[in-house]
Design a protein around this nucleic acid. Structure first.
Lengths: 245, 245
DNA sequence: CGTGCTTTTGAAAATCATCAAGTATAGTGG
DNA sequence: CCACTATACTTGATGATTTTCAAAAGCACG
């Protein structure tokens, strides 16, 4: 069980983190205008998180907000016996820590070496009061996540293993849409392990593996490597994901 | 498949809906102070929704927000072949319609005769601009729902049938906590049908029924009627729901 | 007092999980 | 640089929880 204390691997020393931030234009920070960027920068603490490191632990006092500026992280909840449900993957531009209560309701761990920006909850709240646009932005973020969560509930509650995997692959592709690395269209990278995919889809590793093998044998996908997937028959996958197969 | 058009059964004619509203103190409307209540009232359109009536349809233009002021409603998503996932039950005080996009991402239907308040999206937005407290309140609502959604993902992805039913019953009880009808502590009412419970827990009706029968035979619960349940062994249920059984 | 719906119960079937082992991949140290 | 070890992924056989199919029992309503 991964219940290690959350603590940063290292803290970057940079003068103006926000201005040059890769996530500047996406996410919540986009609500801040150029001229006010300095105030935001003053609050932001850039942190490098090594792969596998937990940086938010369920139940601990929620003292910070985070935004992911590079890499991939996973958010998850645990049952006492170790069963795990990954509730989402967060990559560049994603805002974390919207929990209302005084303690976090989930864990967050880096899938690969990632960079996150840490904000003191109390100090950011003060900043938010000065920038109503940011609060609206936060509401948008929360609303979007709510919609995604409902979609995921449909997947977990009612879709078959094949449908889940197909949905996942398609979501991965469209998720990359905006700022994807220079790759052939239809080719996606899966930074997370099969176990993570399984825990995200409510399946076992074996079922995920078998299902992907089957999708490959049906020419719906191609597997260049375990982490590099090509969507070969997008229409077929979409029909599957929508539950029409 | 319940894909009937959303339309109100009838519109109540009352002078000051908000002041006398049962949900006044809970939910989003609590953000409005006494003196500004009139402005809110002017926007609120109270609507009676008959049991089984759909009042929000997925994909339709999201022109309104709603708050449930009495009764119980269910929110759900559908797959083309009719599979259904209920993402939540909304009763007194619950705010609906947080979808960001221009169209609803879910359906809402009354479980029992219910009253809801309808607000024009655009007009309410203007009101919100004048009352920052309301926006903060909306963010709180969204955050809370997000936490609940993550908990439900854990349930749907990783819990067994018994654990799901136990979790559901406990959530029902604590949900009623504040404004429960004058009932013996530990006794809960289930206004929704077994099918609804099944579609909420990602199970079939038969499994829900069997599971409840088993919980009864194990003296964890008592069933006065299909809709009236007594939690007989709360500790046992909580251990079960937490996955420790 | 039927008629229709909801709930419950039973038996068979199926999907997915578990257990087990083999293969591939990556990282490590000699 | 290569062998070695650890980890991740894949594949196979078996099994169990849950679904599906089927029907009886309970209730509500006309």
């Amino acid at each position: 069980m991964t219940t290690m204390r959350a603590h940063p691997l290292s803290i970057l020393h940079g003068a103006e983190p926000c201005a040059s931030c890769g996530a500047r234009s996406s996410g919540v920070c986009a609500a801040i205008e150029e001229k006010d960027l300095e105030r935001l920068s003053a609050l932001a603490v850039p942190i490098l998180v090594a792969a596998g490191r937990t940086f938010i632990t369920e139940g601990e006092p929620a003292e910070h907000f985070f935004t992911v500026t590079s890499g991939t992280t996973k958010l998850f909840k645990l049952l006492p016996d170790g069963r795990r449900q990954i509730t989402g993957f967060a990559s560049r531009g994603t805002f974390l820590g919207l929990a209302v209560s005084s303690s976090y309701a989930f864990n967050a761990e880096a899938v690969e070496h990632s960079q996150v920006c840490r904000f003191s909850r109390t100090r950011l709240r003060r900043l938010i009061e000065d920038f109503p646009a940011m609060e609206r932005r936060l509401l948008d973020v929360a609303s979007n996540e709510l919609v995604a969560a409902q979609e995921q509930m449909l997947l977990l509650g009612r879709k078959t293993a094949r449908e889940r995997v197909a949905s996942f692959l398609l979501a991965r592709e469209s998720g990359l849409a905006g700022w994807a690395p220079p790759q052939a269209k239809g080719c996606i990278l899966l930074p997370m392990a099969r176990t993570d995919i399984a825990d995200y889809l409510g399946l076992t590793v074996e079922t995920v593996s078998r299902t992907m093998t089957r999708l490959r044998s049906e020419r719906l996908i191609e597997m260049r490597s375990p982490t590099e997937i090509v969507l070969r028959n997008r229409d077929g996958l979409e029909a599957l994901a929508a539950g029409m197969a």
